[in-house]
Design a protein around this nucleic acid. Structure first.
Length: 806
DNA sequence: TATGATATCCTTTTT
DNA sequence: GGATATCATA
């Protein structure tokens, strides 16, 4: 049995599999069979009698976890189901759910994804009256994220001289205070962001010794994939859990560390042996994926990095084709060129799924989409979780979040007036203000308000509307316990009025909204089916019915890649998303200074080295062939800009390259000679040549006029330093007036112009005559519904509509 | 209050 | 170029 498992492994791989006791460091070069070693190691452990419940396997993506589990299942069967396996975030989100009360969070805490977090930070900046010019939510969020990833709490942040000095340097000394307020509000809302899932886990393991002890006992064996991309929080979690047994096995490749920007510490892998002195080290150096040319070319590039673990990657496969290096004039030609090349290869037998186009930034996919479409090549774009970015999906999720955690003010504000219920900004601001004064949630504040007897007519009208909303949420919350997950979701969409709104108002985007909601609900359906199947097979407890809470936590941690369809399509994605994947043919596009390496990275050596590793990762995704391309002109924010070829192109040993121009033109700081006048090319470059062979759409006549050969092109103008706008005193004034109003508003509304009564005849300058149908009292005005004789029924505001009585 | 029009930022990369 | 914030208007 165990001999079967080990079959086909090379000597080092086999050693790494069999020696599963004690700490191990597996340094696994690209394509060296690392996943195979990990899965085989776990399967081997199980075959030796290790209980699956005692294994904790942490991966980088959900997809990697699922694939690994499937592979293990194929080797050892159902027992694989009991292994605790997943991303750090999903495994510890679950662990936190089971123990949340111990650290002051509700069991059904809300997970804020990056946008939620950014929005909250934005409102905090506003509430603190800080300049939005100085404090960009994105930048503040990044800073807070950095702190959390380094396990620096707000208290520690404010006490840290270095951090404060940095903030003062950046002219934003209040970031520490924002951070503190952000944490306070998250806790008040019962919410955690992505970084909290690690930070709070650490707090839990630090402050609840019984919990730590329990999990230390349970997880006798811990395996971590992609260890080079773990951050401080993840590192400490692993250390804490492994303290008793020290059975930690980490797998990684320092040359593929590409997540320093989100706090990953390459040191974690570099110093593993120091952390666990009895570590056994295994080096997997043979690449089974790529041709020799690809591996050697990648080696020649990465040797320009200074800090590396000593290893020598090699391939015993065939030599393979040289890496093609293609220069084009304009970014759109680059896309065409790639599409044509794919078409060519497909004609000679390759499948669409064998191709991937990799780029540095997400925005680059557009041109390729249109080029592929033009040549009717099927493709799919990997993005974050595009489904969850849609507005109505977010609204729907906010409903769910509010139902399971009504104290979450952010969700409350999200949906209290969606669909429109006539609950306006002022009302919401007032409730929020009251909630803050009473140190409680908006939800609770409204509940109290409903009971209080002494309210003016105006206030009663406002409270009634919010009260209806609260009642709606309560009704739904009651339904949740008696209905299945997807039935319940349908009920939420219907009763909230979202469905009606989407069907009633005839906007084209409403159809897509409904499609997206359908998709989400069918995902819920398959989740339910999966749970029930597990129950039938005895892999899930009978009483452990699928809940919307569980589904919600899962969905927040999902990405597109997780709902993989096995279609035969060309893949488009960022280099980052390509990590861990492999394709026969890889196109790395936009090989330009400012793109790869990215503009922001060239200042610091460490960042630049990360970009180089990124390039290394990209190249080593390929099994058979790589094509690199760059354009001389690229559209940036609608404007054409000149670009220079990436410095990394010069770093690849040119004996592995096959360029459509003279390579010598890359070297030296000078610019490349221009298209059309290049003696060597003799014609107008590869694009035109190819285009004339049957694709008339991009003939030279359609190209932009091009300047002569040696004339220096204008360098892009240095970006102007934006002058800070003078503070608008009116705005500041208005703000405080608004606040005062919100605080003490029991005066009668300005009934200016509202001397109408239901049934009266009125005249409007534009709509003509009509009859008043309904009048509603608003905080400072009246809403008048008039049935016009010729224009139908319109809702007007007394303050604005110049109605006259007839 | 709610909507459409106009100004303003922007871009790394992702769990 | 495109999403989003702000503004003017019924």
């Amino acid at each position: 049995m165990s001999e079967d498992i080990l079959q086909g492994l090379n000597d080092v791989q086999r050693e790494a599999v069999v020696n599963y006791e004690g700490p191990s460091l597996i340094i696994a070069g690209a394509g060296s069979g690392k996943t195979r070693v990990l899965t085989t190691r776990i399967a081997y452990m199980l075959s030796q009698g290790v209980a699956p419940q005692s294994i904790l396997a942490l991966t980088f993506t959900n997809k990697a976890a699922r694939e690994m589990r499937e592979r293990i299942e194929r080797m050892v069967g159902d027992r694989a189901r009991y292994i605790r396996m997943g991303t750090f975030h999903s495994v510890f989100a679950r662990l936190l759910r089971e123990n949340a009360e111990k650290i002051g969070f509700p069991q059904s805490y809300t997970i804020y994804e990056s946008n939620d977090a950014k929005n909250l930070i934005k409102t905090i900046i506003k509430d603190m009256n800080l300049s939005e010019e100085r404090y960009k939510p994105q930048a503040v969020a990044a800073r807070i994220s950095m702190a959390k990833n380094s396990l620096i709490t707000p208290g520690a942040y404010i006490a840290n001289a270095t951090l404060l000095a940095e903030d003062r340097e950046m002219k934003s000394p209040e970031i520490g205070a924002i951070y503190a307020e952000y944490c306070r509000r998250c806790k008040q809302n019962g919410a955690m962001d992505f970084d909290d899932l690690l930070l709070q886990t650490n707090i839990l393991l630090r402050d609840a010794p019984d919990v730590l002890e329990r999990y230390q006992q349970q997880f006798r064996y811990i395996l971590v994939d992609e260890y080079q991309d773990t951050n401080m929080g993840q590192y400490i979690i692993v250390r804490r859990l492994a303290l008793q047994h020290s059975n930690v096995c980490v797998v990684g490749d320092d040359a593929q560390s590409i997540y320093a920007f989100r706090g990953a510490k390459i040191e974690n892998i570099l110093s593993f042996q120091r952390d666990y002195p009895t570590t056994k080290v295994y080096k997997l150096e043979q690449n089974y994926r790529s041709t020799q040319t690809i591996v050697e070319a990648a080696n020649s590039l990465i040797k320009h990095n200074s800090r590396r673990l000593d290893k020598r990657c090699f391939s015993a496969a065939e030599l393979g084709k040289k890496i093609r290096l293609v220069r084009v004039l304009e970014d759109s030609y680059e896309a065409t060129e790639v599409a044509l090349d794919i078409k060519d290869k497909a004609r000679s037998g390759a499948e669409w799924r064998d191709f991937a186009i990799l780029y540095r930034t997400n925005k680059q996919h557009g041109l390729f989409e249109s080029a592929l479409t033009r040549l009717s090549i099927p493709y799919r774009v990997y993005k974050g979780m595009s489904l969850l970015e849609h507005k109505d999906i977010r609204k729907f999720l906010a409903y769910i979040a509010l139902i399971i955690n009504p104290n979450d003010n952010e969700s409350f504000k999200h949906v209290v007036n969606y669909p429109p219920r006539g609950i306006g900004e002022t009302t919401v601001a007032r409730i929020e203000q009251l909630a803050r004064e009473q140190q409680t949630s908006m939800w609770h504040t409204v509940e109290r308000l409903l009971d209080s007897p002494e309210l003016s007519t105006v206030e009663r009208a406002v409270v009634r509307k919010v009260g209806d909303f609260v009642r709606l949420i309560k009704e739904l919350a009651a339904l949740r316990v008696e209905m299945g997950v997807s039935d319940f979701a349908n009920e939420v969409i219907a009763r909230s009025g979202m469905l009606q709104m989407l069907e009633l108002e005839k906007k084209p985007e409403n159809d897509t909204s409904k499609d997206y909601l359908d998709q989400l609900i069918s995902m819920m359906g398959s989740y339910e089916d999966e749970c029930h199947r597990e129950m039938e097979e005895g892999l899930r407890e009978e009483r452990d019915v699928p809940t919307i809470e569980e589904w919600m936590q899962n969905i927040m941690l999902q990405t597109d890649q997780d709902n993989e369809d096995d279609d035969n399509r060309v893949t488009l994605m960022t280099v980052h998303s390509a990590k861990g994947l492999e394709y026969d043919y890889i196109y790395i596009v936009g090989m330009e200074e400012g793109l790869l390496p990215s503009k922001r990275s060239v200042e610091s050596l460490a960042d630049l080295e990360e970009e180089r590793r990124l390039m290394y990762v990209a190249i080593t995704r390929a099994k058979k062939e790589v094509m690199l391309s760059f354009a001389e002109l690229r559209r940036v924010w609608g404007k054409m800009e000149n670009s220079l070829p990436s410095r990394f192109l010069k770093e690849i040993d040119e004996k592995y390259l096959d360029a459509n121009f003279r390579l010598s033109e890359l070297s030296g700081r000078g610019r490349m000679s221009s298209f059309g006048l290049d003696d060597d090319c003799g014609d107008e470059g590869i694009v035109t040549r190819r285009m004339q062979g049957g694709y008339g759409s991009a003939r030279s006549s359609e190209r932009p006029a091009f300047r002569g050969g040696n004339e220096p092109r204008p360098r892009p103008r240095p970006e102007l330093v934006s002058t800070p706008q003078p503070l608008d005193p009116r705005r500041a004034g208005m703000r405080s007036v608004g606040m005062r109003q919100a605080g003490s508003d029991s005066t009668t509304p300005t009934s200016a112009g509202c001397n109408y009564a239901v049934g009266e005849r009125v005249e409007h300058p534009k709509f003509g005559r009509g009859t008043v149908e309904r009048i509603e009292v608003l905080a400072t005005d009246h809403k008048v519904v008039v049935a016009f004789d010729n224009y139908g029924s319109k809702t007007l505001l007394a303050k604005f509509a110049k109605l006259t009585k007839v």
